[in-house]
Design a protein around this nucleic acid. Structure first.
Lengths: 341, 341
DNA sequence: CTGTTAGCGCCTTCAA
DNA sequence: TTGAAGGCGCTAACAG
């Protein structure tokens, strides 16, 4: 044989030291080559890279981060993955993280603040560069930890309360209010509401409040409402609308807690031959793609989930440590005038 | 003042040493208390916990994992978050990870094998307990790294090829075949196909192959097909079906690459008053919730995304190191007989 | 039940 | 352009 072909260690025992020995330089030199940091002659660099290839060396970031006190990890805490909304926020986060080499560590709270607290504690233990967390509902302990951590904290989706550090999102109260205005301007007067589990979805509740506010200012109020105990779903929306209309005939507009539910409402109307918009207006929230593909496009409000994730990361990377005053970034929303309202 | 209230350090400089000093014991004792590992007297434990609270100590897992060579991190590599399918796999992963305290570190490849390679390299650097990765399409280097890492590797979704270590999923070829059989048995004979970007979705391609296989065995073949260049979406499905039917009248059954696309097809039929099932059969894939809420439930095949994620994690945690022979776990699928085929 | 002694693998600081 | 020494914060392996 030409040269003793060095088998890559199966046991993953290859460390900087091995690579250094093999290339006849010191550990720190190898380290410099690998991080592209500090001056290294082209010759040395090549020797080192060759050794890296030979050994199949994989750096150990646990050690690296410990030594340099800089982890390249970002904590992300979201309530759920069942709804397409949060994956879209995640997409935004990933898109902004992509170029940086920072990896997200994701936790799911299931809308439970105790779980959230544990999660935050455990994510903070990785000394992340920053923490992204959905919403403003945290235990005091969570808020404490987040403040004391010193790392940047972005609270996502919502801007209707004061942030720990920075909030990125939209006003859900405003969205609810504008929904009401939109429908009032189109002449609807007998309003129904179909929603899902409020205990867990504070933002749906805020939109509801905004809606009621708009109605009140016109001297109106909800005629009836139907709340589904559980997470939003198309089927839940469909059944809830049926229940609502059966119980209270004469309603001419129904606002849904989100598009999933609203699309269920549309399906009910299609199945029952209820003329959308003329017999009954339907209004959602989120602006999902599928709403626009319906036989009659859904009227709704588009939130900018992707942007929320992306913007949060961008802002946070601009300034790596918590400054004093909490800030708020409004990513806005827009009314999508479909054919159902 | 009653007692010198010790301010938690803002700079997060609290380490085990501080806590140890404050509680008058050694570091290792604090460590034992915090990890609930090793015998500690109730007295000592309480002193320590008190000091932890006072200082607001947050453990540093980078250091802990480095010392114990055990990271409590799990690498997860998925192609995309745009389709609800992968978030559901993630949900399954989280649900199985929940009790263990292991945190997932997530990477998105955008269906790009080069990006996947970088991602795997960088995730491996965290010395994860295991790696979960979607599909079988990897570069040689990726496969190498994964093998040499020594950690368990689960390839998800698909079982139509040989695994590096363990594969958890279903046969997409089989699903396509069974789709064909189902439609043939119901008397459909003129088949169309509507699909999305194949270059990126190998599994959709496998289902297509299975479908063609079923048709061929009955002496039939596809009458026409329409491929959308891009990711699947409801609107794409709707428009593609329109194009297909315009170009080739007389088709009596259309198989879609997935439910998103198929639902678009259903919307087209609703808008055009095409009688589903009688004039035209529509068949999807995935078994999304929304399909069941349609005015006429979508006929489709239910894959078990959540179970795939959960099962993979469970299996992997059973045996922490790669054994010799690759294994395969079939999570199966089932035909959902709706009202569109 | 508690403590001592050595690192884990890498990077910072300083010196050459 | 390179290297030596020391330490990041924690935990295994032994003592006692």
């Amino acid at each position: 044989m030409k040269s003793g072909r060095r088998q890559p260690d199966r046991k993953q025992k290859v460390t900087l030291t091995e690579v250094a020995k093999m290339s006849g330089v010191s550990e720190i030199t190898v380290s410099r080559v690998l991080r592209n940091n500090g001056p290294v002659s082209t010759q040395t660099r090549e020797k080192v890279l060759e050794a890296v290839k030979q050994t199949g060396y994989v750096p150990n970031r646990l050690a690296g981060s410990l030594a340099s006190a800089d982890s390249n990890l970002m904590g992300v805490v979201i309530p759920s993955l069942s709804n397409i909304v949060f994956p879209e926020v995640l997409r935004g986060i990933h898109s902004a993280l992509g170029p940086t080499g920072i990896q997200p560590v994701v936790g799911i709270t299931d809308y439970n603040m105790e779980i959230e607290e544990q999660l935050v504690r455990s994510l903070l233990a990785w000394k992340p560069q920053a923490m992204l967390i959905v919403g403003f509902d945290h235990t005091d302990a969570t808020r404490q930890m987040l403040r004391n951590s010193g790392v940047r904290v972005a609270e996502l989706m919502d801007i209707d309360s004061e942030a720990i550090d920075i909030a990125v999102g939209m006003s859900h109260r405003g969205a609810g209010y504008d929904t009401g205005r939109h429908l009032l301007e189109r002449g609807y007067r007998k309003f129904g509401y179909v929603g899902h589990d409020w205990l867990s979805d504070r933002r749906a509740r805020l939109r509801f409040d905004g809606l009621c506010d708009a109605l009140n200012r016109s001297g109106l109020s909800l005629v009836d409402q139907e709340l589904f105990q559980g997470p939003s779903s198309t089927m839940a929306g469909r059944q809830a609308l049926q229940a609502l209309l059966t119980r209270t005939p004469g309603i001419d507009a129904v606002v849904f807690s989100n598009d999933d539910m609203a699309i269920g409402g549309v399906f009910h109307c299609l199945a029952q031959n209820i003329a959308l918009k003329d017999d009954l207006a339907i209004f959602g929230f989120n602006g999902l793609e599928i709403g626009g593909a319906l036989p009659q496009p859904l009227s709704t409000i588009r939130s900018h989930r992707f942007e929320i994730g992306r913007t949060a990361v961008e802002k946070i990377l601009e300034t790596p440590v918590q400054h004093g005053a909490p800030a708020t970034i409004n990513t806005g929303y827009e009314i999508v005038v479909g054919a159902t309202a």
